[in-house]
Each structure stands twice: as C-alpha cells, then as structure tokens.
Lab assay of single mutants.
Amino acid sequence: HAATELTPEQAAALKPYDRIVITGRFNAIGDAVSAVSRRADEEGAASFYVVDTSEFGNSGNWRVVADVYKA
C-alpha cells in the first residue's frame, strides 16, 4: 500500500519520525508527490507531508522535502 499524503492540519497533529529529500525532474507537482509517496513507502512510512518544493536553477530539476510519519 502506498503512503498517503496528509493535509496541513493532519501533519500538524502528528510528529514526523524522519524527513526525506528527493531531487529529480518532475513535469508537475503531482509527479513529485508520487515520487515522495514511493520513497516514503519504501521507508515503511504510513503517510507523508510535503514541507517544501524548490526548483534548482532553470534546469527543470526539483528538490522536494517531506516529513514522513509511521501511523
């Protein structure tokens, strides 16, 4: 099962156990969220919340930071 994305309210009520950072070329924010979901799932997380997204220069590469939560 894939890790689910939390709302800001849900994330605020929970304590993350880790923070992950992924970088890559994403065509849309949805693609980045899917990549975070896969990584969170690999780490055994039940859910995640994207904290920050930023573009690296003009290369089209993105850096996505997310907190991950157990259950």
Rank of each mutant, 00 (worst) to 15 (best):
T4N: 09
P8H: 12
A66G: 02
I20H: 00
V21I: 12
D31Q: 07
A45M: 10
A3S: 08
V64W: 03
I29L: 13
E5M: 13
D41T: 15
I20Y: 03
A2H: 15
V51I: 11
S37L: 08
D41H: 15
Q10M: 10
V68H: 00
F26H: 01
T53A: 15
V33H: 08
L6R: 01
S54N: 10
Y49G: 01
S59A: 11
R25Q: 11
L14T: 06
V50F: 03
E43V: 15
F26R: 00
F26Y: 07
Y17K: 02
L6S: 01
A12R: 12
L6G: 02
V65C: 07
V33R: 09
V51M: 02
A12E: 08
N58W: 08
L14F: 08
R63Y: 11
S59R: 07
P8W: 14
N27W: 10
F26V: 01
T4I: 14
N27A: 13
W62G: 03
D31W: 09
A3P: 15
T23H: 11
V33C: 07
D52P: 01
F48W: 03
S37M: 11
T4S: 09
A46D: 15
A66S: 02
E9F: 09
E55A: 08
A40D: 02
V68A: 01
E55W: 12
K15V: 14
S34D: 14
E42C: 12
A71Q: 13
R19E: 00
Y17T: 04
S37N: 08
S34C: 14
V33F: 10
G44R: 04
I22M: 05
Q10T: 05
T7H: 06
A66R: 00
D18R: 14
A45I: 05
I20L: 08
A11E: 01
A71P: 12
I20T: 00
L6V: 02
V21H: 05
A13Q: 13
A12H: 08
H1I: 07
I22L: 08
A35Q: 06
Y69D: 01
S47T: 06
N27G: 11
E42G: 06
T53I: 15
V50M: 07
W62F: 11
H1V: 07
Q10W: 06
P16H: 03
K70Y: 12
S47R: 05
S37V: 08
L14K: 09
A35E: 10
E9K: 09
A40E: 04
Y49T: 03
A3W: 04
V51K: 02
F48P: 02
D67K: 03
R39S: 04
A32D: 02
G57Q: 08
S54Q: 15
L14D: 05
I29N: 04
A13G: 12
A71G: 11
R63L: 12
R63D: 03
S37F: 04
T53E: 05
E42T: 07
V51Q: 03
I20Q: 00
Y69W: 00
E55V: 11
I22W: 00
A28H: 14
G44E: 04
E55R: 09
H1C: 14
Y17E: 01
V21S: 06
S34E: 14
T7S: 10
S34W: 07
V51D: 01
T53V: 15
S59T: 13
D41S: 15
G60C: 07
Y69V: 03
D67V: 09
A71H: 09
G44Y: 04
A2F: 14
Y49V: 09
E9V: 08
Y69L: 02
R25P: 09
D52A: 13
E5I: 07
A11S: 05
E5V: 06
T7I: 04
K70A: 11
R25D: 05
S37Y: 03
K15A: 09
I20M: 05
N61T: 12
A3Q: 02
K70D: 09
